[in-house]
Each structure stands twice: as structure tokens, then as C-alpha cells.
Design a protein around this nucleic acid. Structure first.
Lengths: 226, 226
DNA sequence: GTCTATATACGGATAGAC
DNA sequence: GTCTATCCGTATATAGAC
């Protein structure tokens, strides 16, 4: 599977997710026609990510959002009841896409080497397809309320534990060299993180997500000796 | 040199730096007694980092800062003329400490292996000693004005080029295995970054900065084959 | 040098017309 | 469903007393 193919799948699953977002927020969404809601939510979320990634969610005024999304202040407030709720909706939706895709694509890989490769590639592909949100999520995590912040932390630790599990499995099978599995998993995560945190740098250097993925895998091969 | 020893040196050089900060801002600082200025600037900067790292610089109100620093609104404005100028002052000062210390401690190391080790340890020690600022600087970079943002980016690329230079040297000498030197440097930076971005995680797991430094060095040894 | 009190503006949110 | 106009709270910044 190439990145191009992967990207198509993610785009499709996004459509379903909007329907869930609407269902979960029936009370606050005063707009009834589903097609309208999907269209406008896409505009709104896109605008939020664009503005926030430039100057931060707190610094984004509702007037900014109104201008960028093309919807009036009044119209915006028919989709959510407060700026905080908007943030929460966005987080829930994007995390849902992200986690579901990862779960769905969980390696049918048979060997540990293949599992490790699948985990690295899938996560990088996801963060490539949804880079604005991954960046946003990392940068705004501390501005979320406690419930949402906890969800973000748990999600982060979960990813780490996925890598840790694969490494331990490989060590038990005698395929990976003995190393601190948790610390290794943590470092892997740091490497993958850089792909969406420093996107501008890699883009300028014309490094593709596939090249980056191969490189990190080489790193792991050398360290784990496989 | 242990981290404890290193930390003492940094603390001392901080004192000098305050005098420079004062000198550079003679016009806006209406307070004359140097001792008072140093004392209050320390309070102010400490409070800014504390509050901002919890909820972001933009979300920190001057009332928050007044409460946390113990200075009144009026008093605060005798040290800077706007919230933006406060940010700029803080960035200039902390970056100055950081860059100077790195430069001063630039490896007298003779071999490339030693140079690489020195660079890894020094940067980690620095980010450990000044963790609140390193975190702040990463998180608030996009909120700076263009001039300051450019300085931050340049500083980031400079660090990368230091690592790249060492790697190339080692390769020329035939001591390091052939790898993409720039991409390797970039990944090293990502690993070091994680130490201050995910500090809470490593603290909870009782991983010391020295352990972390040794671990990243092991990673590099495996990859570069030395 | 530091305080309290306040001018002024800007942001989130809503009412009510169309 | 969407818009314009506006309320009202809170933020930055400053004036002037001590």
C-alpha cells in the first residue's frame, strides 16, 4: 500500500464521521439539513485548523473564524454553543477518524518485523493525511479542559504501548536485540512526531513521507538488530 | 561533568544575563535600581513561564501575571511597555543564555565520538536546566512576531547543523557508517526535543537526564556503527 | 517604585429581522 | 438558515495618588 492509496481510504471514512458528529450534537446543532451541516462543518473545521495553526486557538477570534469560513457570527453559533464546544467537537471527531483508521489497519502482518513496519508506516501516513489536526492537537492539548486533555494523554500513551508491545514480542521471539522496550517506544514516537511538528522543514527539503518512514525504520533495524 | 555541576554553571551565567537585559531595555525600564530590577524580572519571567506553560501565553492575562508575580499591574508596566515586548524580552534573554552556554561548552573533545557525546549531553543538560523556557519557546514560537520567529527557526536549524557537521566529520574519518547526515541530525534533534516536550512522562517514570542521554547515545552508536 | 482605579477596546455570545 | 447589530464581560494599558 502506497501513501496515495492510503489517503483515499482516509478521505472516504471522513464522510461517515461527519454523520456521527452530527448525531452526537443533535441538541446544539440547530440546523437540520444534513447536507448543509456537513458542508459547513467542513468549512468551519478547516478554518479553525488554518487559523489556529498560524496563531493559536485562543488568539483566533470568532470574527476571524467568520471571515475565513465565510459564515456569519450568527450562523456559526447554530453549529455549536461556545468556542470551547467547537474545540471539543473538533477533537472528538478527528481523534475518532485517527483511532479508527489505525485500528482498522492494524497489522494483519504476521512477523514482528512486519508489525513494526506497519505501525511506523500507518502512523506516519495518518499524520501526513491529517497533518493540520495532528499539529493542532499537539499544540493545543494544554488548552483543553481536563476531560479532553486526559483523552489526549491517554491516546498518546496508547500509541506508545502499541510500539512497546511489538518490541517486547520481538524480543521474546529472539528477533530483536534486548533494549529498554518502553524507552525505545518513546523514542520512536518522538521520531514520528517530528514529521508533523516540523512539516515545513521536510517539505522544503523535498523529503516524502515514504522516505521518512524508510529512514526511521532503518534506525530501528540498526538499534534492534534485525 | 555531571548534570549537577553543569547546572551550577548555568545558574551563575544567568546573573550576568540579567544585566544585559536591563542594558538593552534602558528606555522602557523606568525602574533604576539594578538590584530591584533583577529581583523583579526574575519573578516576572518565572511567573510568565509558569502560567504560560499551563494555559498558553495568549490566555495569560496581565491580572494572572500580577497575582503570580506579586507585582501590581502598574508595577509590571514599569518593566516593559506591552505584553508583546515582555515576550520578546524573555525570548532574547533565555536564548542568549542558552546559546552562550552551548558555545562556551563547545567540545574541547578531540575525537568525533567525543564530540557527538558532548553535543548530546550539553544540549540535554541545557534543556533540563531551562526546561520551562525550552517548552515555552517551542509552544509559543508561532505567536512571536516575524523577526522573533525567524530567530527561533534559525536557532533550531543551527543546532541541527552542529550535529550534521559532527556526523559528516565522523564519516570522512571513516569512523561513522554512511548515512544521510542531515536526516540523521534532524532525528537526533527530535529525540532530544522529546526530553523537554514530554518532561512529565519521563519524570513520572523516574528517568534521569543522564539515563536519557546515555540511551540516545546508544541509539546513535547502533545507527552510526561506532 | 509601587499601588489603585479607570479609560478604552476587543472578544464571545445572542436577539431579532429577513 | 443566515445575517446584522448589539450586549456585556474581560483584557490591556495608563493616570495619578502615595
Amino acid at each position: 500500500m502506497t501513501y496515495a492509496e492510503f489517503n483515499k481510504i482516509v478521505t472516504i471514512s471522513k464522510k461517515d464521521i461527519y454523520q456521527e458528529t452530527i448525531a452526537e450534537n443533535r441538541e446544539t446543532m440547530r440546523v437540520k439539513k444534513e447536507k448543509t451541516v456537513v458542508k459547513n462543518l467542513e468549512k468551519i473545521f478547516g478554518a479553525v485548523l488554518k487559523i489556529s495553526n498560524r496563531k493559536g486557538f485562543k488568539a483566533m477570534s470568532m470574527r476571524d473564524l467568520s471571515r475565513e469560513s465565510g459564515l456569519s457570527m450568527g450562523a456559526l453559533y447554530t453549529y455549536f454553543s461556545s468556542k470551547d464546544e467547537l474545540l471539543e467537537m473538533l477533537q472528538n471527531q478527528q481523534r475518532a477518524i485517527s483511532e479508527r483508521t489505525l485500528r482498522e489497519r492494524v497489522a494483519d502482518a504476521q512477523t514482528v518485523q512486519a508489525k513494526l513496519k506497519a505501525a511506523v508506516f500507518t502512523h506516519l501516513y495518518l499524520s501526513e493525511a491529517m497533518q493540520p489536526w495532528y499539529y493542532f492537537s499537539f499544540m493545543e492539548a494544554k488548552n483543553l479542559n481536563k476531560v479532553e486533555r486526559d483523552k489526549a494523554v491517554r491516546s498518546d500513551l496508547h500509541l506508545e504501548s502499541v510500539f512497546e508491545g511489538i518490541i517486547q514480542l520481538g524480543q521474546e521471539e529472539g528477533i530483536f536485540r534486548k533494549r529498554d522496550s518502553q524507552l525505545t517506544a518513546s523514542i520512536i514516537q518522538a521520531m514520528l512526531q517530528d514529521w508533523y511538528l516540523k512539516r515545513y522543514k521536510y517539505a522544503k527539503r523535498n523529503i516524502s513521507v515514504d522516505q521518512y518512514a524508510e529512514f526511521t525504520l532503518e534506525f530501528l533495524k540498526a538499534f534492534l538488530g534485525f
